[in-house]
Amino acid sequence: MSPIKKPGKNILIVDDDQVTLMLLSQILENSGYGITQARCGEDALNIVMMSEPDLALLDVNMPGMSGLDLAKRLQIETDVPFMFLSASTDHDIIKQGISYGAVGYLVKPVDTVNLIPTLEASLARASEIKQLRKSELSLTSALASGRETSMAVGVLMAKFQTDRHAAFDALRAHARANRKTISDVANELLLAEETINQFKKIF
């Protein structure tokens, strides 16, 4: 029986070692992932520009463009998340990889038992980062476009001792649940706050 493809889980493996490249490709393909291979950083960049993978697995030490150099390009020029593959356990290299935004790190020789769990954890982390970026953009856009929305977010932050993102997410969730626009819910919230404030004068 052929493996079931996992929707949205396409992995780009970049390694100049053919044996490692084939081994990882076979394991991941047998587990249902879509696989693309590259033997160098330049080829990997071309592949990314043509078909954006869900995760790139980068060998650190490659001739020409190293995995760290490639990671920096991916971080600056694309939204493709990446993790590193290296025979080195040098903490400085690991720290440098993390500073570039890596979502994971695998040490050669790869422990095949832990390969899939590590990959899934990295994919989950990558998904969280994308959601945070999307939420940040949505929040920035909403606050920029409406004074009432910004004020309503401030009210929720003060009332529930929460941060701006959580307050905006709550406002958006309430709007969706009640099939209203965020602006409408923000106005309702501000009116309710004004009404409550009027009662403060009585008490």
Rank of each mutant, 00 (worst) to 15 (best):
G8I: 07
G8A: 09
L12R: 05
V14R: 00
V14F: 02
T20Y: 07
L24W: 01
I27C: 11
N30K: 15
A38C: 10
A38W: 02
G41Q: 04
G41V: 03
D43K: 05
L45F: 12
M50Q: 14
M62D: 06
P63N: 03
M65F: 06
M65Y: 05
G67C: 06
R73Q: 14
R73N: 13
E77N: 13
D79Q: 13
V80D: 01
L85Q: 07
T89S: 13
Q96T: 10
Y105G: 09
D111A: 09
V113A: 15
L115H: 09
L115C: 09
A121E: 12
R125Y: 08
K130P: 03
K134N: 13
L137K: 15
T140A: 12
G146V: 05
R147T: 13
A152E: 01
V153D: 04
G154I: 00
V155L: 12
L156R: 00
M157N: 07
A158K: 06
A158W: 09
Q161C: 07
T162V: 13
T162K: 04
T162W: 04
H165G: 05
A170C: 12
L171Y: 01
L171E: 00
A173E: 12
A173C: 10
A177I: 03
T181K: 15
E188R: 05
L190E: 05
I196T: 11
I196D: 12
N197E: 11
